[in-house]
Nucleic acid binder design. Structure first.
Lengths: 112, 112
DNA sequence: AAATATACATAATTTTCTTATGTATAAGAT
DNA sequence: ATCTTATACATAAGAAAATTATGTATATTT
């Protein structure tokens, strides 16, 4: 579980990537999705997620839409046009970073 | 270049891995090696490196040996026995983290 | 002679998390 | 019926780990 502390710096990009894929998501949904996709490896804490969403919104990368489901509040986020452009860049950076890390840590891995 | 900000949390493991490979290295050498291995992608700043080395030494994972080459100071670091054990664990964690990130960011990549 | 490279170090600041705490509703378990 | 867990948001305090700026000193290249 030591891994939960290793994703620093990439949370924003993960959020953008998921929203790009899924169209729109709400916060809690994002935490569950990441948990599922990583088989429990990455657990995004609420204390990290919500401030991150607010910041991305403030930067103009996300739009928010409030909904009420089962008498409970949900805030659906989706990419703005600017957000879509930024997603491409940040994703490219993250992918390059991942490749670099692999090269350092395990040059034997083949990525195809 | 945006990448230089993305390696948070993994610097210690990178240092340990390199020392495991190379036997012993000094600080400046580590920065150059990482730069070379990643083709300029990852640039470890001195403000990050030296405190990291000192901390690893304080934790008992590294031993230091001072040398003078060309009238200039060098501090060679190498893994202690404890350091070697820790390297195995942290490297496994980092590899798992990298795989998780790949799954999130680019599930199409095949790692063989 | 000046600029760049080598080689260390630390302090101030910023970024980005974790942990703790709070509110509120719904669903499942005892 | 009550307690626990899940859903769903939020923020504040603190810690961790970087960046940036600054400092010292020697060697090499221009």
């Amino acid at each position: 579980m030591g891994n939960s502390k290793l994703y620093k710096g990439s949370l924003n990009t993960i959020i953008l990537k998921l929203l790009d894929e899924q169209g729109k998501m709400y916060g809690y949904e994002i935490t569950q999705k990441v948990k599922a996709l990583t088989k429990g490896e990455l657990n995004i804490t609420e204390g990290a997620l919500y401030p991150a969403l607010h910041k991305l919104e403030a930067e103009g990368l996300l739009d928010v839409e409030v909904a009420k489901v089962d008498n409970r509040l949900r805030k659906y986020y989706k990419l703005t046009e600017l957000g879509e452009k930024e997603t491409v860049n940040r994703l490219a950076d993250l992918e390059e970073f991942i490749r670099s890390m692999q090269n350092l840590v395990n040059p034997d891995w083949n990525i195809t």
